[in-house]
């Protein structure tokens, strides 16, 4: 187990290194002078030169990349901003705020969004999928199948504004989506994020309903289920005690991979509802060609995905004792 973890973590670090280097080098291909953002309205050429020096932009690219890497572990000292303690991802070219601080600041928003949506996806998707499998061929199954076909075809940027218009603008059933800290007002956190959760999870929920249903149907045809039935176990307890365990294993694996997609969906959802999360930060960084912010967000995003994948692998072993990690 330890050996497995070490190997996975080392592999993850290599992937992160590659991603950061690629992003860093690609972005310097853009002919843009971030120094202007630090220069007053009437910007003198000599002030620009000074700022470029302050930002370390007069050094060769690989040296700049090296400084960036070292800064993560050892911190840096900028003439323009003063000390930047580790983990230092630099300062935004656009807003001049520390990148790490900005990401930490917005992290709860994206985390809340993803956790809430995951909860909806897993609970609702798996539940309806199991119900559909339980009542195979009956009206409930058909309704579930039908809605999952439509649900899987919906787009966040269409459903989002549409639901916002009807539920928020017109009916006033829900407050306009925004982020309320869970620690300050749990109920407000829930009501303000409910709509984004639903919108973000619609496509995924539909897919998980379909998957769970087919997995369950498959499991019910397995030998061990037949054995259990033959031994006189009620179909209810076979269904809820054994079959779902077998069905969950592939679902969890797929969910681990889907988390990356979910994070991507979070970008669109945040944009749709103007939520101040990491996705919105990323879109703004792209619009501003804000390299430090972009690098920071990309690395943190990729790191999240890599870590989640490792967690899923471990979880996999816990659910299915047949899997031996080693």
């Amino acid at each position: 187990m330890t050996g497995f973890l070490v190997r996975r973590i080392l592999g993850a670090l290599v992937i992160l290194l590659i991603i950061s280097a690629v992003t860093f080098y690609l972005f310097y291909a853009i002919p843009r002078d971030p120094a202007r953002a630090f220069c007053g309205k009437i910007c003198r050429p000599e002030t620009l030169t000074l700022i470029r020096h302050n930002l370390g932009m007069d050094e060769p690219l690989f040296v700049q990349y090296w400084h960036w890497l070292v800064g993560i572990f050892a911190g840096r000292d900028f003439v323009q901003f003063g000390a930047c303690p580790a983990p230092c991802l630099g300062y935004s070219f656009a807003t001049q705020e520390p990148v790490f601080g900005a990401i930490v600041d917005r992290f709860p928003v994206t985390l809340s969004l993803t956790i809430g949506a995951s909860a909806v996806i897993l609970s609702f998707g798996i539940l309806t999928g199991m119900l559909a499998a339980w009542k195979v061929g009956q009206p409930l199954d058909k309704i579930a199948s039908a809605s999952s076909v439509v649900g899987a075809s919906l787009q966040i940027y269409f459903v989002g504004p549409l639901l916002a218009f009807y539920l928020v603008d017109t009916a006033g059933l829900l407050p306009r989506p925004s982020y309320v800290a869970f620690t300050e007002d749990p109920l407000g956190w829930f009501t303000h994020l409910l709509l984004p959760w639903v919108v973000l999870s619609i496509i995924f929920t539909a897919n998980y309903t379909r998957m769970t249903r087919s997995q369950m149907v498959e499991q019910l045809a397995e030998d061990y289920v037949r054995t259990a039935r033959a031994k006189g176990m009620s179909s209810r307890s076979v269904f809820f005690r054994f079959a779902w365990r077998g069905a969950m294993i592939p679902i969890i694996t797929i969910f681990g991979v889907d988390l990356a997609t979910l994070l991507g969906g979070a970008i669109i959802t945040e944009q749709t509802f103007s939520l101040h999360g990491i996705g919105e930060l990323a879109v703004r960084a792209v619009q501003n060609t804000d390299l430090p912010m972009l690098l920071g967000v990309t690395i943190v995003g990729a790191a999240a995905i890599v870590v989640l994948n490792i967690v899923v692998d471990v979880l996999y072993a816990v659910i299915d004792p047949r899997v031996r990690i080693g």
Binding site: I15, I18, I19, T23, L26, F27, A29, I30, V257, A260, T261, L263, G264, G265, I267, I268, G279, A282, V283, V286, T289, L294, V297, T298, G301, A302, I305, V306, N309
Partner: peptide, 17 residues
């Protein structure tokens, strides 16, 4: 590596590049 990329993010990052 490609599958570990946050692909949505990279789509918007790479287009201007």
């Amino acid at each position: 590596t490609l599958l570990a990329f946050p692909s949505q993010l990279f789509l918007i990052v790479f287009l201007p590049v």
